[in-house]
Design a protein around this nucleic acid. Structure first.
Lengths: 256, 256
DNA sequence: CTGAACAAGTGTTTTTTTGACACTAAAGGA
DNA sequence: TCCTTTAGTGTCAAAAAAACACTTGTTCAG
């Protein structure tokens, strides 16, 4: 069968799941092992977690299913940010090999609806899922070549995340429930890839009203213990509750 | 066949096309006429322009095809903003009737990738397309009940437009090539649904560098003739060239 | 030809927000 | 007790935003 022939497309979701640990923004990938007929050695490659959308399933539900099968986390906020449907997106040879081992009709076109999620990497209990031998957290600057057009899908998510963080108090999902100002600042610095002024950061965050100051502090650290904060979830969804500024000249003025 | 059965979904694109004329933001809709077996009178209803994505066709291309078949305009910027895939989205009776008259498999689930476009309503030469008897511009506050979940799709586009306009000099596509400051301000006021201060608006727009001041002025108006401006397209795509500010307290500070 | 009607166009001041900048405080460990 | 380490704090100058009212140039009516 030729490309361009008359088969309804498959529809899948792919999830770009960001986590934050050890001061590093990480991407959750699955590792696939494919029998290589030539070398008799198995090939390994990485891919975004994803799956076909089931017949009676909402797109959002499909994404949530993929995420929860993989991490054990439920009810996480997933944001749909783009769909990819280039008819030639499924063309690399090793992808073919894998598809042939999994799908009835490996030649069929696949349109994928991409979702982005932010989670606290430590909360995720990674489980080998239906398609994944293994799931791993990879620092975003060390993401290898991925299956299909997954690199493109990931890059677009990263770009969207950087823009989103300017506008919404988004990063909180990436931290444990109670966190210190320094952790929060470090998260923002990581996402934005630049340093922020400590005092200005604190002022802005506190004035924004999105933080709840707890009386609890760190214990057992060999320096002045930091106060913990929580995110004020009541302020979250209203979506008009913006915390940051984009400047006229194009520079971001969120912090600094 | 039941819903939830095992048929690959159809994939379509729907286009939310905004235009601006007579100080009003308008939506381009197509009017469908469906034979009603009971009354022998034809039923009429409105829908967003859209079509199935062809087998060898990119999603963006499909949207562009829909738009250009309908308006004769080519190369218009279309922004994909969301995909809709509720398995029950195609359930209203009159939609069924229409689908039965057009599709081979009217029960099949349809996932639609929605696009948004902004055009100068006066440039569009509306053409009855493959599926549309007639295309009409309807003020956004007078949009009637639409087919399928098209009302939801439209509302989401409108919301996205309001956010977009805060961040990007987007509105220019909606105006003729040469326009006055007042027209531009009126456009922004329409989209944002609030009044803006004339002096602050002009200052901000001029400082942003996106406008080219022409020597040409209005003629034949019975008041002081307004100067024309053009949009500086070279500044457009860089995407970092932002013109507006979102404020900390949630209010938009773009203008006023 | 005069002036009334109408929208265009123009600056200043006050308030708010940002950005730059350096020292003290509190804990553990040596 | 003192050294190391990270937390935590305030001020001032610069930039941006918001509020605000009068003059200008054109047509049309009388």
């Amino acid at each position: 069968m030729q490309l361009g022939s008359s088969v309804n497309p498959h529809v899948s979701t792919d999830c770009v799941i960001f986590g934050f640990s050890d001061e590093t923004l990480r991407l959750l990938l699955i590792k696939r092992t494919i029998p290589n007929k030539l070398t008799e050695l198995d090939d390994t490659h990485f891919a975004l977690p994803g799956d076909l959308v089931r017949d009676d399933e909402d797109l959002d539900s499909a994404a949530n299913r993929v995420l929860s099968e993989l991490t054990g986390l439920k009810g996480i906020y997933l944001e749909q940010y783009h769909s990819f449907g280039d008819p030639l997106r499924v063309t690399k040879m090793k992808d073919r090999a894998w598809l042939e081992s999994v799908r009835q009709n490996p030649e069929a076109r696949v349109i994928t609806v991409a979702y982005m999620a932010l989670i606290d990497a430590k909360k995720a209990q990674l489980q080998p899922g239906s398609f994944s031998k293994e799931a791993v957290w990879i620092p975003i600057h060390e993401v290898p070549e991925l299956a299909f057009d997954h690199n493109e899908i990931f890059e677009k998510a990263l770009k969207a995340l950087k823009e989103k963080v300017q506008i919404q108090p988004v990063g909180f999902e990436l931290l444990p429930e109670k966190f210190t100002m320094s952790q929060l600042q470090s998260l923002y610095e990581t996402i934005l890839e630049r340093d922020l002024d400590k005092r200005n950061f604190r002022r802005k965050m506190l004035n924004s009203g999105v933080l709840i100051r707890l009386s609890e502090k760190q214990i057992g650290v060999s320096n002045k213990p930091a106060r913990f904060y929580m995110f004020n979830r009541e302020l979250f969804l209203p979506r008009d509750q913006r915390i940051v500024n984009l400047k006229m000249d194009g520079s971001f003025t969120l912090f600094n």
